[in-house]
Design a protein around this nucleic acid. Sequence first.
RNA 1: GCUGGUGUGGCGGAAUGGUAGACGCACGGGACUUAAAAUCCCGAGUUCGAAAGGACGUGUGGGUUCAAGUCCCACCAUCAGCACCA
Length: 807
Amino acid sequence: MKNYDFKTIEKKWQEKWVNEHSFRAVDFHPTKPKYYVLYEFFNISGNLHMGHLKGTVPADALARMKRFQGYNVLFPIGGDSFGLPAENAAIKKGINPHKFVEDGAKKAFDQSKQLGLSFDWDRTFCTSDPNYYKWTQWIFLQLYKHGKAYKKEGVVNFCPNCKTVLSNEDSQGGKCDRCGGDVVQRKRWVWYLKMREYSEKLLDNIDKIDMAENLKEAQRNWIGKSEGMQVGFDLFAESGRKLGKVNIFTTCIETIYGVTFVVLAPENDLIDNYAGEIKNWKEIEDYRKKTALRSEFDRLSDQKVKTGCKVEGIYVKNPVNNAKVPLYLADFVLAGYGTGAVMAVPAHDQRDFDFAKTFNIPVIQVIEGDCKDKAVEKKEYLSANSKMLNSAEFDGLPVKEAKQKIADKIIAMGAGEKKINYKMQDWPFNRQRYWGEPFPVVFCDHCGTVLLDEKDLPLVLPETDDYLPNEDGDSPLSKVTDWVNCKCPKCGRLARRETDTMPNWAGSSWYWLRYIDPHNDKALADFEKLKYWGSVDCYTGGTEHITRHVLYAFFWQNFLYEIGAVPTREPFKRKMGSGLILDDQGKKMSKSSTNGVSPLEFIDKYGADAARLHVHFLGGYEDNTPWTYDGITGITSFLDKVWALQNMIKGDEVSQEHRFELNKLVKKVTEDLEDLKLNTSIAALMTFIKKVRDDKFITKQELRAFLILLNPMAPHITSEIFEKVFGTQILDESWPKYDEKFLVADTITLPIQVNGKMTKKLVKVAKDVSQEQLLKEIEKQYPDIYNSTMTLKKVIYVPNRIVNLIK
RNA sequence: GCUGGUGUGGCGGAAUGGUAGACGCACGGGACUUAAAAUCCCGAGUUCGAAAGGACGUGUGGGUUCAAGUCCCACCAUCAGCACCA
């Protein structure tokens, strides 16, 4: 027998799989049930990295197992290509982004083939393909037509370096997700998608999906649902003339008698109508200018130092007691959350307390506790259920009861109502960039905002060689004047196209639907096919997109469902978040890591099967695992032993000696692969091979089962051995089954406990032995532990597991 | 600060409430070899003991149970997400 020559063998099978379209999914398969496995598509950049080896292989293993189990499996791949890498290559090296994407996608797909990934190669596409983004644009048209897209001047996160608008999701921590620079707040005309309307539906999606709790929490946290009250504080001129109303949002209505000031976000334009009444308008304008220039990062980092500006000349009244309350602007109040205005209760909110100290505002305590040096906050007084003070008729009531009663009173007065707020904002949906989907929208002086007709899609991105935004931060498309200037689709007069493009998240917000019918030019996908394939059964990929991509995906699928474009509301039934490969610093492995290793280098050295097994033997799918080549010899020697099984065949049917071990193995691998636990599957396969080698033989049927069980993880070597031994193709086989009655060995070595303590004594008995028989056996072997002259208080006997003698 | 996760040998990591440390690496001993590599066999939680055997062991302290790494309570450490969200 020749040694296992992975280079030749792996290449042979990879070519065969591609040439024969071995993993093509069949629409409307007459007999097989469907199973849809999805791996997050590749961000088209450079070579695949270790993260891909970690992320893709378990999905591939699941897909391969499901095929053996008789499912019609859809396991597709594509490219997220309207991204930063292509754009940067264009800007920095003058590479045409189309060319960059074409090369990058080819590279990613070729490298996937070298890993032996069983993707359906007939369904690939990239988000920058016009035939794909035609439908991304189509979805935008639907969003607009259904009132879910609107353009307005808003205060947005803006990156001065990238000269573009960012969503909250893209500017977490006040840093630009694209370049890492500081984000500032700027007023701009922005396309928004009404994602906030979908908050409850998204929360519902989160409840239904099968996903790790920490990821669900991250998403819920992001949506940030909070229940409280909205209360109106009437606004007066110094003369006492009523001007209007300031609505505030609070979750602590019980503290309303302690309000000593009200604060508006600097961007809140409510008071602009009363500029004439305000005595320090100039000061207010200065303050507004100052805060606008402060970066988001500054605002977050100086949380202790409160800045603000009193509004002189007008005041508000507390509805519960008509107390006169001064009004301030301060940037600790966010324009985008709630009403952009808060009632401040320094005694019971630390931020208000800090602000009150800085501006010498009085403090009124309304709940028991010591608030001399700090506020007594909600958490503290609610857990103690403290009593009310200085709150008129509510004095002396426990705070929980008072909360309810004060709310009732305010509602009865008509001064306020119960209200639910969400942190999640509408999605700012435009970027001032070249490399993205153009909006199918023109602006006409006569007709206003006009949509392109669906039959005129795709609106193709024009060619240019100037990929930079201009100084005002307008998109590079604005410089392509013969594209910008167009005819209004409605009146035919001269009009201008929208020159911003969609964010790179647009294309990834519906791509799993397109795999179902990637070449359809009549619809985003055929409705019957969508019905057939349904929701993705298992979606794998990184966890870094959990508050962006996955929430956007929920949003779009919900919308498409509501307009009847797709048959299901839930895009994914189950989401598994791939852990990271860590470098020697304990950080995510990257090319700059001191021990950064590329999967190609690994494959070249040890082969794809070894690479697949090694990375997944290091740890579970959702765990971060430190990278090391240590232990690779364990994997290569395992594969050598697998190869050597060909020479150990003796007999045909499953042998008496291996029946129990094999049944156990089938159960273990079947269950573990379903959970993407490749590490324990591999361990079980190693244990079995040890047994076989001890016994120096394996039967044909045992080998058949073993190869099929290993195939999802090491597809090349198993395909080769199978073909050599059986003369047929392993892919035509079906998954081995186990029999419950063989899951317990015929002879059990039972541990004995005395009074709940392990004795380290073991007794050999037949499977399912009776308690009576067992005690006789113990007496025979260990008369000092038990003999019939002893009286036992109790015997706890768990058949085939343990016996505990209580003396 | 809030929320969620995780704490097990020298290392990566296993354990439906039932023999803790599977499987693998590294390590020690042996076989083969002129030698090395490769391969194969054996050993191995810590500790006392020549051995038989004993004691102690899953971050810490309590609890539930015949039995706890696993369940409950409190605390500590660590990782991650969010964070002036009213």
